[in-house]
Nucleic acid binder design. Structure first.
Length: 466
RNA sequence: GGCCCGUUCGUCUAUCGGUUAGGACACCUGGUUUUCAACCAGGUAAGAGGGGUUCGACUCCCCUACGGGCUGCCA
């Protein structure tokens, strides 16, 4: 078996949709897991709607997801001459013909059929078998000479064997009367020329596959392996749209989901391998197979996304996580970390990452190291700093001056103070949290003290005790 | 309208004719605990409906309902 070649072929008419991201991911996993190639082609033949900004956004989205492609990005529009050449070759082979019917004539044909009571009308061009000597001197489109009887069978790796009756398909136009190629032809020519062996795409193309397969047949080309995957739906089961919230991959980056978690979640959305839930991309590549893809559309579940992200956050290496955190801040338009904050963050990451699911949550938990003196206590925290508590903090600071700065050394000091004052550790922790972080919900007081260091700890406690 | 695809706990799914229908998320309860989390243990919860085929159907076939897609000289 020759090398596997897959591709992702989005239209540059907007940002990278979450469904497109998953389609790209499946193609990437399939190719990478088999030592194959994953190609990227921009289907920009619709000049009205295609924009360079959209192409850039799609590339950014893929890059964020960690999906790397092989070779140069192919522009479909730039290959239009090649597409036209194939259309002419079909003409020469007799698998296509010149059609001089105008748009008005086609509409009239359909209207007439419907008037006769037909519920639908496949246009049958009068030029299909016309004698070339009768051709008018007028613009013409090139139509594929599709079989009118029999059936076209799509052997789909996800949908199974799909049978389409040829009589329901018209002679599709492959080259418009203005000489530009039509998408359906372009896809086939490009996939063939690029050596694509496996076409993994949304099942909105399932019906199209029949016509595309006819082009392969007409040209005598090898039909690729088809795999039409179901689309992603919103939580209510309807097609995912803006009203469900985020539909763009980059929006998820801006919301602070780690890319590894996003990848894992998207891989599991509509695909399964036994009970495997949490896995790295390397593991996913080894497990991924077309047979594991479900046939029903899957719904987006933010809770599970978060949970999956939490696992990956905890699994991440500190340096890489810090790097991604900084990228998140930039993507979300939030201020970057100062060198001091970055240094403290690196120390705090080992305990912060184990309980955070997203970067905003991580930052929330890290607020004690983001702030600087004087620490402003919020209303609830201020309540914890009553006269008695301030007195306790005051008596605590001298004992911290000479302690070695480890949890083992600090623990007896803090529990000792609590015992001396006849209070439980919980009663002591509250004012400590208020003094160190200015809030009532924080990481462990020991973790905070160890992170910011002796000098800053004593300073913050002294501030609060004053 | 026609054609095509789909339908297992609330959600993602396992099952490929014989299971007490399994796992994960969510939810509920308990535990741990200096707060919030995280973590640990346990629990609630499913084969759209109706016909067949079969000794036996979630699994195979048909019908219905519901959802989605396609039906362009858009992609």
């Amino acid at each position: 078996m020759s090398q596997v070649v897959t591709r992702f072929a989005p239209s540059p008419t907007g940002y990278l949709h979450i469904g497109g991201g998953r389609t790209a991911l499946f193609n990437w996993l399939y190719a990478r897991g088999r030592g194959g190639k994953f190609l990227l082609r921009i289907e920009d033949t619709d000049r009205e709607r295609s924009t360079p900004e959209a192409t850039a956004a799609i590339l950014r989205g893929l890059t964020w997801l960690g999906l790397d492609w092989d070779g140069e990005v192919v522009s479909q529009f730039e290959r239009r001459d090649r597409h036209a050449e194939v259309a002419r070759e079909m003409l020469a082979r007799g698998t296509a013909y010149k059609c001089f019917s105008t748009k008005e004539e086609i509409e009239a044909y359909r209207a007439a059929r419907e008037a006769e009571g037909a519920s639908y009308a496949v246009f049958q061009s009068p030029w299909r078998d016309a004698d070339p000597s009768t051709y008018p001197d007028a613009p013409y489109a090139i139509r594929m000479k599709a079989p009118r009887t029999g059936e076209t069978i799509i052997e789909d790796q996800v949908q199974g064997r799909v049978v389409i009756k040829n009589e329901t398909l018209d002679d599709m136009i492959v080259l418009r009367s203005d000489g530009t190629p039509v998408y359906m032809l372009a896809v086939v020519v490009d996939d063939h020329d690029m050596g694509v062996t496996h076409v993994i795409r949304g099942d909105d193309h399932l019906n199209n596959a029949a016509r595309q397969q006819m082009v392969y047949d007409a040209m005598g080309w090898t039909v690729p392996v088809w795999a039409h995957i179901p689309l992603i739906h919103g939580p209510d089961g309807k097609k995912l749209s803006k009203r469900h919230g985020a539909t763009g991959v980059e929006e998820y980056q801006a919301m602070g989901y780690p890319a590894a978690g996003m990848r894992n979640y998207l891989t599991r959305l509509g695909w399964a391998h036994g009970d495997a839930e949490i896995f790295t991309s390397d593991e996913a590549m080894k497990m991924f197979d077309l047979s594991g893809i479900g046939r029903a559309p899957a719904r987006l579940d933010f809770k599970k996304l978060e949970n999956t992200c939490g696992h990956h956050m905890a699994m991440a290496e500190d340096a890489a996580l810090l790097h991604e955190l900084q990228a998140y801040l930039a993507a979300a338009g939030r201020p970057a970390l100062t060198d001091l904050q970055a240094g403290l963050m690196k120390q705090a990451l080992p305990f912060l990452k184990s309980s955070a699911k997203t970067f905003p949550e991580l930052l929330e938990k890290a607020s004690f190291l983001m702030i600087s003196r004087p620490i402003a206590a919020d209303a609830k925290a201020a309540e914890a700093l009553d006269t008695v508590s301030r007195g306790i903090l005051k008596s605590l600071t001298p004992r911290l001056q000479n302690a070695s700065w480890t949890k083992e050394a600090l623990e007896p000091i803090l529990t000792g103070i609590a015992t001396e004052n006849g209070i439980g550790f919980g009663k002591l922790a509250a004012p400590l949290r208020a003094a160190l972080a200015g809030r009532t919900v924080t990481p462990s007081v020991y973790d905070m003290m160890l992170t910011i260091g002796r000098e800053e700890t004593v300073a913050r406690l002294s501030d609060a005790a004053a």
